[in-house]
Each structure stands twice: as structure tokens, then as C-alpha cells.
Design a protein around this nucleic acid. Structure first.
Lengths: 247, 247
DNA sequence: ACCAGGCGTTCCACATCGTGGAACGCCCGC
DNA sequence: GCGGGCGTTCCACGATGTGGAACGCCTGGT
């Protein structure tokens, strides 16, 4: 059994995959009334599955499809696989969600969702941050072998803001707490006015080389009532992603 | 304005992107009646957008989405970009469509659609064939600079079947014909019982390094009435793909 | 400047199509 | 072997998507 609306919507998508087209030609190619095609396209646009070429022109495929399909790829791409989870996290928390890995003893931000909120958080993709100053770094640090942790804490720790925690003993205690909770918060320790929660992406062999996080402006994030819930949400998303990366 | 069915279908897809789930849990997560979810999933399955995990288990995203989304990727993957065009060609002609490139003076088959027909054509992906023995090779040869063509024809030309054309002069004449028509047919010249049509994918700089083709069993393909139409269909698909690769 | 043609969009009465609660049958694990 | 939970199917109902026709805009030929 199949559903007319869905059949038609996919026919449109498949035709658009061959290249951008206008409503009229699209309607001819799929043999449907123009009005029906226009309405379906509007609905697909609301889902980001298609987008209009500079208001008035034709339509082309949109990024929404890629976001969804990324998780389906048999292979490997961490960023693509993480995208749907980032989007869900962002929607759940109404803040910006991101993905980071550990690279050369630092946190490297790989990707983050777009913010529709008027109060923007800048895009950190491609930027580095010290492990001990951001939530994502703390969860990754917390899951490193003891000797590596000690090695990291033995070196001088940069102070990014007034609130950056740099005392090795305090940090060790904090890491213990993070391991226990499963997630970490950081409060304006890397950049002023910026808070974030992160949870580790645990690989099948137990190693942690990447993390998911959510961050937002300190004045509204986190709402104290929801801090723990947000932590759990990030943990759940990270767990699901890890499971998906496993097979 | 938006359409209920489409909103719901995409909600399902987005949730499935987080990992495989069963109908019941899916229904809870998107807050819809189980029956509605089951029906939508069945419809999406018909579009290959989702697939059922070994009859009875849950559902996961299917390959259909990736096929569609491939063309939307900003990045350049020839195989991914070609996929939607192959699928359309295959549907139009009701035979197998494929993509090939020229590699080290031979045709290298990169990808082909699955055949649902009972009379199968084998999957040539990853296989090599001599330029002069297959349609895809002929169109690529036809668009090479004259000196390269002569260089190729000067070497001894392997005879794959009784019908393989190996005389350089005959081939030169045939290439002229191919350039004029824009597509090429080959009739059991590479493998017995196998015919195919191909058209070149012309890059913006005029070079031709890849081709689209359709092939099928000689006893039914091509229907003489449709041979030219099939040629035009392959040309059109190749042109659209080329345009898409251009920007 | 103008108008003709073609585009994407909107409208609205109609009936098709999707809906969802309930009932079914199956497989699994207690 | 039996209860619970799964995915699936059924069917009367009416909400929902439909599509022909009409609209307004921009474009380019005159």
C-alpha cells in the first residue's frame, strides 16, 4: 500500500535530483497539476528538503535531505552521521549543538547547528580550545587513560577567562565528578558569556575521541531547572550516535 | 502552508536518522497513532526511503534517500551525482543504466543500477573493457583529440567477440558517425548477447572522461523502434549531469 | 513605454484520500 | 504454554489534500 502524497513528493524530489527546475516544467515532467506541485514544493520547503532559487526562480534540492541521509550512509563519516543528532539536540534544547574531536591535545570543533535565535552564538567550527576549559574537552579528558590525564595536567594550563580552572588537583576532582555524571558543564571558562554541556561519544573499544555538546549564552543557558535534563539529553544523543558508529 | 502527510513523513525520517527503531517506539517519539506510523512507513518503504530490518524487526533509513540527496551535495562526487540520473534512465528504458570513466586507455565501469527484471544483466562495476568494443568507450574515444585517437587505433585492437570491430578505418568512420549522432550503440561487441547505448558527459572545458550508458540483453534491447529514442534519453541525462557537475 | 506571454502563487468547492481506534496474528521469553 | 508486546490490517468517518481557474508579477520583445 502506498500514500499518494508521499509518492508524489518523492517523484518531485527524484526529478529535482536531476537538476534545478521551475514549477511549470516540474509539473509537466511528473504529470501533475501545477497547483499541486506548487503546494507540495511549499510543504517540502518547510522541511528544508527543497529550496527556492532566489525568490521567484525555480526549485532545487535543499540541505534537509542531506542531513537526514547522512546517517544512512554505510560508511564512516563522523560529521554526516552526527548531523541528525545535532539537529535533534538543538531542537530539544533550543540552543546550538555541536560536535568536536580531540586533536593534538586540544578540542577541535568540527560542526555545529545554525542558530535561528536572535541572540547568536558564533560558529566555532574549525576552532581549537584547551581541553580543560570547555565541556567537550572535560568529557574527553575524563575518559583518557590515567597517565595521559596526568601528563596533560602536568603541563602549564592556559587561563582563557577569569573563570578558567587551572589547578591540577581541582581538575582531577572535577574529572572524577564528570565520569560519575556522564556529562560535563563548563561555565564561561573558555569564552565569557558562553556556557556548554557535553557528553562523550564512547567507541566500542572504550576510547573517547569525540563529543557532542550544546552551548548557549550564559544569561539564559542553562536554566537551572533543566541543567541536568540537558546533560541527560546530550548523553542520550551521544550514546545513540556511538551505537550507530559501531556497526 | 504545509501538508500534514509530508510533515509527518519527515518527522519519521528525522527520527529514523537517529538510529533504527520499531514502529511502536517510533509512534511514541513522534506522538502519532501506531497505525498511522505503520502506514506511512509502508509508503516510505515503497520509495526506498526506509527499509525493514529483516522482516518483523524495526525500520531503518533506506538507500533511496541517499540516491536523491547525492545530487544535492556541494561536493563533487561523480558517482553520487550520477546516481539519480542512472535511476531515471533505468526507469525510462526499463533496462540497466550505468556510469563509466576512461582509465588508462580503457573503459572502467563505475556504477550501475540494480536490475529487477528476471533476465539479469551482470554487474560490471569495477570491470574494464576496451574502448572500441563498448558503447561507452566509443563515445569517449570519439571525443578525444585526433592524435590520441590515432594513437589508440595504431595499437593492436583486441577482439572480444566475433562481432568486435577491429579495423582502424572502419572505426574512424564509425567515430565520425558517433560524433554526429551524439550517442553510440554497440551490438554484442564486448560480450555476447549484450547491447548498449552510451552518451558522453562533456565537461565545461570540452573534455570527455566519462559516459552514461544503458545496456540490456540483445534479444529485447533495443527495440528497433526505440533505439534512437534511447539514444536521445541517454544524451539528455548526460547533458543534465554535466551541467550539474559544472557549477 | 507598452503589452503579451509565461512564470510562481493563491483561491475554494469538492470528494478523495489519509486517518486512527480497535482487532488480529505472530513471535519471543518468562 | 501462555501472556505481553510487537508489526500489521481493517474500515467507517471526515479532515485533508486536490486541481481548475483566476491572479499578479516580472521579463523581454517591439
Amino acid at each position: 500500500m502506498s500514500i499518494q502524497t508521499i509518492e508524489r513528493a518523492f517523484a518531485l524530489l527524484r526529478t529535482l535530483a536531476l537538476g534545478p527546475v521551475g514549477v511549470t516544467e516540474l509539473a509537466e515532467r511528473v504529470e501533475l497539476p501545477k497547483s499541486t506541485v506548487a503546494r507540495l514544493l511549499a510543504a517540502l520547503e518547510a522541511e528544508n528538503a527543497v529550496e527556492q532559487i532566489e525568490s521567484g526562480g525555480g526549485y532545487r534540492l535543499g540541505p534537509g535531505l542531506v542531513d537526514i541521509a547522512g546517517g544512512a550512509q554505510p560508511g564512516r563519516n563522523l560529521i554526516a552521521s552526527a548531523r541528525p543528532h545535532l539537529l535533534e539536540l538543538a531542537e530539544k534544547t533550543d540552543e546550538v549543538a555541536g560536535l568536536s574531536i580531540i586533536d593534538d591535545g586540544q578540542v577541535l570543533y568540527l560542526d555545529q547547528t545554525e542558530s535561528s535565535s536572535s541572540v547568536q552564538v558564533r560558529d566555532w567550527s574549525g576552532e581549537y580550545a584547551p581541553l580543560h576549559a570547555v565541556a567537550a574537552g572535560l568529557v574527553m579528558l575524563a575518559h583518557m587513560p590515567d597517565d595521559e590525564i596526568e601528563g596533560y595536567l602536568a603541563k602549564p594550563l592556559p587561563k582563557c577567562t577569569d573563570l578558567t580552572m587551572t589547578d591540577p588537583d581541582d581538575l582531577l576532582e572535577r574529572l572524577e565528578h564528570v565520569r560519575h555524571l556522564g556529562y560535563a558543564w563548563s561555565y564561561e571558562e573558555f569564552a565569557e558569556g558562553l556556557n556548554s554541556v557535553a557528553a562523550p561519544i564512547v567507541m566500542p573499544d572504550g576510547r573517547v575521541e569525540s563529543a557532542l555538546h550544546v552551548h548557549g549564552p550564559a544569561y539564559r543557558f542553562p536554566d537551572p531547572d533543566q541543567a541536568h535534563d540537558h546533560g541527560l539529553a546530550v548523553i542520550e544523543a551521544a550514546a545513540r550516535l556511538a551505537e550507530q558508529l559501531a556497526d
